[in-house]
Amino acid sequence: MSLKLEHVTKKYRDFTAVQDLNFEIEKGEIFGLIGQNGAGKTTTFRMILDLQETTEGTITWEGKPINSVNRDILGYLPEERGIFPQMKVDEQLYFFGELRGMKRDELKKEVDFWINRFDLEEKRKDKAETLSKGNQQKVQLIASFIHKPKFLILDEPFSGLDPVNKDLLKNAILLLRDQGMTILFSSHQMENVEELCDHLCLLKRGVSLFSGSLLDLKKQYGKTKLTIRTEMPLEEANLPGVKEIKNIKGEYLLTLEDESFAKGIFDVVSNGAYIEKFSLDYLSLDEIFKDQVGGVHV
């Protein structure tokens, strides 16, 4: 076990930002912390990073209190983007690396590798303030892990990136994970969380609604999303166990009360009619998220 939060609470005078939060992250795992704005994600990150004290509870890294571990094992990408505007790209990376205890000659290989990987070779001698927002974000991201931390926290790493750079980042995160780095990240874009994380914690107004594996979360809802493409008009059919039916671009999207109704529906729909598509799925994380934190029933 790398990181463990036990009964972590953060209270201000008249406001509780995080309440009784518990989760664990295995070494070399990518863990997602999801929640709406104001759910307590950044406060949780700051407590893990020892930038804020917990009101109650404990946070440990490999069994030791987080505030007693060497700070250089940590890496952090804040939600808001910012680097030193007057510093050149490579100087910036050397500075952050040296600050975290690495020597300049050790850093050279890393700086060259990541500058190349993030397609910043032509910009390496440019001042940060002259870069595009996306490139600044890439520099800041590299700066957060240039010292090869054991534990990396990424707060909304995908926001503001175009699809090409998003893929670059995803691949980089997977590469870092493969190198043994433990990664905790937050994102509003659930498809990224779904793609990268095995485990997650879902926060709503400081309270954990779920903490565990993504599959377990999906299993809680069951396979209740049924997609059917057929010429048969399903709006008029009397289908059992259907909570809602929508026709989206020629496909019917059905929300079932329970996955056990799927077989009965198949019998009705397939009775003498040709079916192009009949697909029973778990809800997407995005749908679960909206249901859990937004109060929307899917």
């Binding site: 990073l49 930038l51 700070r71 804040p78 939600e79 808001e80 910012g82 680097i83 030193f84």
Partner: peptide
């Protein structure tokens, strides 16, 4: 103020 506003400070304060 500039380091705080640009959030560069948050990155610094993780290790400093």
């Amino acid at each position: 103020a500039s380091e705080k506003g640009s959030r560069a400070l948050e990155m610094l304060l993780v290790s400093v």
